[in-house]
Each structure stands twice: as C-alpha cells, then as structure tokens.
C-alpha cells in the first residue's frame, strides 16, 4: 500500500486551556474524497484550521504527514504552496483588493515554489475565465474586491473558483455547502467533482448529506468531542441523516 496523501496520527490540539482535538487519527489516500461530519462544536473547523496553519491553535501532540512531509513544521503559506487548500467556512472580505489580483498572486506564489515560470496576464485570464464559466460566475466578479459585498453563496462559489484555479493536491472544504440554495449547491458540487483526480484528495467538512448526494465520498468519519468516533462508507452519512448523532454519542460515552 502506498503512503496516504494525508496521514494524521494522534493529533492533539488546544485553544488556550481547552483541548479541542483529543487524538485524531485519519488517513486520506490520493484519489479519494472523505467526508467529516459531526455535531456543532465537535472540532471539525479546528481540524481544518490546524491543517492550514491558522494561528491561535497549540498542537500538543501527534503528527500530520502531507505528501510524506511534516505538515505542522511548515508555515501556513508554504502549506498552501505545497498544494494544501482550505475552503473557508466564512471567507473574509478584503476591500479594495480585486479578486483577479489576489488569485494571480496566489497562483504565481505556487508556481514559483515549484520553480515554474509565472503565468502571464493573458494566460491567467483565459484560465480563470474558463473556471468561472464552470462556476457560472459573471466576469464583472474579477474586478470586484475580494469577497467585498458578496452574498454568502457568492463567497462560497469564489472559494471553489480559487480552488479550481490553484488545483491543490489536497482540498479541505469547511462547510462549503452551508448557506447555499439548491442551484448554488449543484454548481459548487460540480466544481468539487471537477477537481477529483487520482493524484488529489478532498476532505469535505459538512453537516448535511445533501452535498454528498452530489459528491459521493469514499469514506465518512464522525467527529465528536475532538475524536473520530466512527468511520464508514457512504452509507454512514445516510444513516446519520436518518438517525442524527445521538446514538453514536451514547455509544462513545
């Protein structure tokens, strides 16, 4: 068996005095989609943030290997350049900075990291426009400020657009489906499906089955009280949809 793209071993994390992750074990092989589900406050977002290197979390134990290297040893920007993408649950607004500018800077940062030439304005525009078509976004979007005045749905589409342009090897999407209407959900799901490839992995952090109807996961994990308490196939998500989390929490307690 080959090394998984992402391998988390006994990961323990604190915010202040509170232990938010209490020994996470998770392997995500290349080519797979894993869903992480769980009740509010179970540590789902913490896990996403820690993987991306957000400040404010203290790792007290365990390890994370990404493409065989120690992910936790890298600063946030290097994780990104190595191909680790976080789709934010609440994408922040950056007034006055246009979307195209940030996206091109991001793409070129990754390309420089791989010792590839920077993409010129012409090729960049062609690339981003083709992805925007896929995401059914209007071209005026490129000159708007990053997430500035965007609706919740537009922000989420923007996250997926960025992902499609950057083509990361690991995408962790933190509740990308929340706040989307049915049509937007389909568009976002189609975008995620586009990224599926044998050399890439996707981790979907979600509350609901409905995204998984469109993006079928290979594995489903239930995160509760900072631990993965159950893992299974796609049928686990359906069962959770039917029965909720309580039966699992009772078992785990």
């Amino acid at each position: 068996m080959t090394t998984p793209l992402l391998s988390i071993r006994d990961l323990r994390v604190r915010i202040g005095d509170r232990e938010v992750l209490q020994g996470i074990n998770l392997d995500v092989p290349a080519g797979q989609v894993h869903a992480i589900m769980g009740p509010n406050g179970s540590g789902k977002s913490s896990l996403s943030h820690v993987l991306a290197g957000k400040p404010g979390y203290t790792v007290t134990g365990g390890s994370v290997l990404f493409k065989g290297q120690d992910l936790l040893a890298l600063p946030a920007e290097e994780r990104a350049r190595e191909g680790m993408f976080l789709g934010f649950q609440y994408p922040v607004e950056i007034p006055g900075v246009n979307n195209a500018y940030l996206l091109r800077a991001a793409l070129n940062a990754a390309r420089r990291h791989r010792s590839e030439p920077e993409v010129d304005a012409f090729d960049f525009l062609a690339l981003v426009k083709s992805r925007m078509q896929l995401m059914r976004m209007d071209e005026s979007f490129l000159s708007r400020g990053v997430n500035e005045g965007f609706s919740g749905g537009e922000k989420k589409r923007n996250e997926i657009l960025q992902m499609l342009v950057l083509e990361p090897s690991l995408a962790v999407l933190d509740e990308t489906d929340s706040g989307l209407d049915i049509d937007a959900l389909k568009v976002v799901a189609a975008g995620i499906q586009t990224l599926r490839a044998p050399d890439r992995a996707i981790v979907l952090v979600t509350h609901y089955q409905r995204l998984l109807d469109h993006v079928a996961p290979d594995q489903v994990h239930v995160l509760a009280r900072g631990r993965i308490i159950k893992s299974g196939g796609p049928e686990l998500a359906l069962e959770l949809e039917r029965r909720g989390y309580d039966w699992l929490l009772d078992d785990a307690a």
Binding site: K54, A76, I94, L102, V146, L166
Partner: peptide, 9 residues
C-alpha cells in the same frame, strides 16, 4: 491568514 492560506508571503 486568508492571504497566507492562498500562498502569499
């Protein structure tokens, strides 16, 4: 953090 996560220094 948003910018760093997109690979900017």
């Amino acid at each position: 953090f948003y910018c760093l996560q997109r690979g900017l220094s």
